[in-house]
Amino acid sequence: MRKISASTIIYSVRKLCMEACQDLDPQILAAIKDAFKKEKSATGRQILDEIIRNAKVAQDDKLPLCQDTGFAVFFVELGEKASVIGNLSDAIKEGVVSGYKHLRKSIVAHPFQRKNTFDNAPPIIHINIVPGDKLKIGFLPKGGGAENCSFQKMFLPIATKEEVINYIVDNIKLKAAKACPPIIVGVGIGGTFDYSAYLAKKALIRPINSPSRDSSIAAMEKDLLKRINKLGIGPMGMGGSTTALAVHIEHYPCHIASLPVAVNLECHAHRYKEVVV
């Protein structure tokens, strides 16, 4: 058994929070620069240019890319031959409290009482047990604006791929302009009601330009991306051909009676970072 101390986890999480909120993923930056070359709308190009400049200012001024530094969402893989001295969830929470000192505290303690917790805790933690003796912590600070534009539907099991694609495109047409486009579209298909939403979120952390390993699903991703970018929504909803940077679909077996489809939207300020402890 490999032992990992809680303090190592606290330190790693603190660092993850601070770095992820400041540094734009190089792949996202490359995709934005590529979109800038192709975008025909003058306003669209101006907005893409602001996004490119912002990434540099965030580095130079040591500031968060976006003021919404999000709900702290974690994807944790704990090796079955690794054991944490102390409590893993508590250590992650403590890392968040420490890492968010200079980030925005965006969490209220109760859905109706709505008093700020003033430390951005609690985080949301998904833990999976995997082979090996490592601990992998993935951190996704999730902004509220794009999250609010997410949607889900329990389809009949006889639904076709085309029906699902139409449902996704129709809803993106209604909602994407409020999700800070160009967006990343995370789709979860299959499992249960809750699991499809989990898959949709997990789809967001896949590196962009990495299609699904299932060729029929990869074709669906490609088709969706093409159709979404034909909607004309454009950067910040002001018109143009750059509405989405990527569509990622994660899928899972279904119950004979169901076909859940969940879609989680992510803004262009996509922040994800992971560390192996």
Partner: peptide, 11 residues
């Protein structure tokens, strides 16, 4: 409308 997600620059 101001551009969302470019808050370092806007500051």
């Amino acid at each position: 409308a101001a551009t969302g997600g470019v808050a370092a620059m806007l500051s």
